[in-house]
Amino acid sequence: MATTERLTATESTADTILRVRDATVSFEMDRGTARVLNGVDLDVKRREILGVVGESGSGKSMLASAMLDAVEEPGRLTGEIIYYPEEGEPVDVLNLSKAELKRLRWEEISMVFQGALSSFNPTMSVRGHFTETLRAHDADVEAGMERARELLSDLYLDPERVLDSYPHELSGGMSQRALIALSLVLEPNVLVMDEPTAALDLLMQRSILALLSDLQEKYDLTVVFITHDLPLVAGLADRLAVMYAFELVERGPAAELIRDAAHPYTRALLKAVPNLDAPLSTMRSIEGSAPDPVNIPDGCSYASRCPLADDQCLREDPGGYGAGPEHPVSCHHWRRADEAVPFETEVGE
């Protein structure tokens, strides 16, 4: 088969819980229209842990906000977001009333951001946050608090002590875990986390990931974990999706993507991460910089930094090629990516 032939990956959609189509977020600026999310298609599968990886400014936080129709003014979100509950009719997220959206956001899909302290009200005890959330959603407070205590102990916290505390009395790691417990108190099915651990020490980050993995199993959760830190999610996620310049450039099963990434950017990113065991000489930064959202170039956005770029890349936007049955990649020359950006040592060894 010729390398230029388009292969559309056949991702199965039967188990989809959240379907994102052509999600685009734009801002009007003096300089023109900034497109900070550019036509993203993504299916989140029921009960999977999906890692979305991107550097700062890649649009990954916009994608998180878009999933909950939570893009802030003056950003404009277009496209389609469909939530498929296990039972009942699909929900068109971008066409909900305020009340419906509020219900969806806590009871079906909930969200955890970086920096718990700014998510908590400093003048309210942690217990107050739980009871207020339960009351605002007309939930049974007593049963809800019982669940809260269980969630807190699942997260290695002393429930009574934490509930009695004010947010500033807890360490960063404790308040972030308390926030995760709060986000789960109304039994949502999907948890969207945007850099939930980035402000914490590495030891706490990895510990929280181990706990998340337990929670996901215990409560049958679907988790979307958004981060700039590829190694952090690599061991946790079932699938990975990589963002570059406001678009998804590659997604696939985590192990396949780590071992045999098909996009030159993903491969370069894997090599750019300092780690403990690989020879120092194999670690390389990625030269150049990402494009301006006001001036997204024609063709491939990564072309200016890519060793494989040719005329076709500058002209023609690479759509979805199939590097594997569940592994779409946006690169005209993905078959040659491993030669162009070789992994000098076995990754993971």
Binding site: S171, A210, A255, N275, L276, D277, G348
Partner: peptide
């Protein structure tokens, strides 16, 4: 313990329990 906390790329990696008795300092 700090070495454990520094995740290396492990495609087959299981998420392991932290090798400390308590995760809070």
């Amino acid at each position: 313990v700090l070495r454990w906390a520094t995740a290396d790329l492990e495609p087959e990696g299981e998420v392991e329990e932290p090798p400390v008795r308590t995760i809070d300092i």
